[in-house]
């Protein structure tokens, strides 16, 4: 079972994942992410705080999504991963191609445009 909560905060689309991301639930997430891209969203903060499990099927969704973001010059930050989930990302070598931050605040700071220098 996977719940995907989407919230918009300025330019950033915040996605909170709750439950398990496996072969059964990954198509649901993939579909939602694709819909958001089609709707024009290009800046994503994906929160893993409530995600208990991720399998290769879930990782595959993020690899495909990362490629799309790269092609569209979009931004994607993953954050609040548990040690187990982080371990899976590290083992798959995803930490080298995706930006992973410890907290949501840190992730948001990376996504938000830097304030223009005073004139």
């Amino acid at each position: 079972m996977l719940t995907v909560n989407v919230a918009k905060s300025g330019e950033v689309t915040e996605i909170l994942l709750t439950g398990e991301l496996d072969g059964m639930t990954s198509p649901q997430l993939e579909q939602q992410l694709n819909s958001l891209i089609e709707a024009g969203e290009r800046c994503f903060l994906i929160r893993f705080a409530a995600l208990a499990l991720i399998t290769s099927a879930g990782l595959r969704v993020f690899l495909g999504f990362a490629k799309k973001m790269h092609k569209l010059n979009g931004k994607m930050i993953l954050c609040e991963m548990s040690a187990n989930v982080r371990g899976v990302f590290d083992t798959a070598g995803f930490s080298n191609i995706m930006t992973i931050s410890a907290t949501a605040a840190e992730g948001k700071a990376l996504l938000e445009p830097e304030p223009a220098p005073p004139a």
Binding site: S56, L59, R60, L63, V88, T91, A92, G93, F94, I97
Partner: peptide, 8 residues
């Protein structure tokens, strides 16, 4: 995971 690691 091996397949995904190579793709990454």
């Amino acid at each position: 995971i091996v397949i995904l690691r190579e793709l990454a």
